[in-house]
């Protein structure tokens, strides 16, 4: 073997090795996301743990809380949706500033067209747009808000719930730009403002002493009520639906859970699934 040839082989071998290394690094960096989410599909019922791939995303959790919202049941029970909203907003001291510019909301109502703008609105059947659609954070299994947050003030817990650390948040609002669902609100001003007589200006239903209020300059949103789940209670909004079964809450990755069974036996849709975020809130229309 002449020197040239030997050198060539050496170089070829080295570059192949480098290539292999690079390609696996590449997979780690960029494809980790895609691989995990492919495996994760169908994960609605089959429990699975995402392999630890790259740093690129919050990993799918074995346990993923989710919610099914049954719209016809809300349509049949006038005022039920409003009850859910009031329950959540009281429970979490969500301020009401009375104007759209400062608005903060954790759960709210909209029509079909604006809840599912990516679904076809073409020759929509009559009445569809009059349905009351409850909207909240989707606790995405692949949440872009978590990816965007520069301080990890927004993070996903072991139960797939996307929560906020109000004390760490710097108020950059990158997460608001990143959320494709408009689920996040910012405290544009101080929600704790009081009148001279000590009453709160913006907590319209009074103060819930069991949940902290926020300071101005931080972001907030629905947190799936971890403080209630910890003591074995359902989320406040779910509790407000009573036994109507208009909202079902639970671990969507446990095939034996009630929610998994509901998902298995009903046609459900999600908001903007094309964004690849894997929302954990499902709708029966």
């Amino acid at each position: 073997m002449d020197v040239k040839r030997r050198n060539f082989l050496k170089i070829a071998g080295l570059s192949a090795a480098a290539g292999l290394g690079a390609s696996s690094a590449f997979t780690q960096l960029f494809k980790g996301d895609a691989l995990a989410s492919e495996e994760g599909h169908g994960g609605e019922t089959a429990g699975h743990a995402a392999p630890a791939q790259g740093e690129h995303k919050a990993e799918d959790t074995e346990f993923q809380y989710g919610m099914v919202i049954d719209i016809p049941k809300f349509a049949a029970n006038k005022g039920l949706a409003e009850k859910c909203i009031a329950a959540c907003h009281y429970e979490h001291n969500v301020p009401d500033f009375g104007n759209p510019k400062d608005e903060i909301k954790w759960i709210w109502l909209d029509d079909y067209e604006h809840s599912f703008p990516d679904a076809s609105q073409y020759k929509r059947n009559a009445g569809l747009n009059d349905l009351p659609v409850l909207l909240t954070c989707n606790h995405c299994a692949n949440p872009p808000c978590v990816r965007a947050c520069p301080t990890q003030a927004t993070f996903k817990n072991d139960h797939g719930v996307v929560i906020m650390d109000f004390h760490r948040c710097i108020g950059c609002r990158f997460c608001m730009a990143a959320c494709p669902y408009g689920a996040r609100s910012f405290n544009w001003r101080n929600p704790r403002e009081q009148y001279a007589n000590g009453n709160y200006k913006f907590f319209k239903h009074g103060l819930n002493p069991n949940y902290p209020t926020r300071m101005r300059g931080v972001v907030e949103k629905c947190n799936f009520c971890p403080e209630r789940l910890a003591v074995g209670k359902p989320p406040a909004c779910v509790e407000a639906t009573g036994d109507t079964k208009a909202m079902v809450f639970g671990n969507i990755n446990d095939p034996n859970s009630e929610i998994a069974k509901v998902l298995n036996s009903n046609f459900t849709i999600q908001r903007n699934p094309a964004a690849g975020t894997k929302p954990s809130v499902f709708y029966i229309i």
Binding site: P150, I170, N187
Partner: peptide, 16 residues
Amino acid sequence: DLGQPMRIMNVLLHPT
């Protein structure tokens, strides 16, 4: 633009 400018160092304290 920051809501909590005093916390800007959090970006370095919790590198992400």
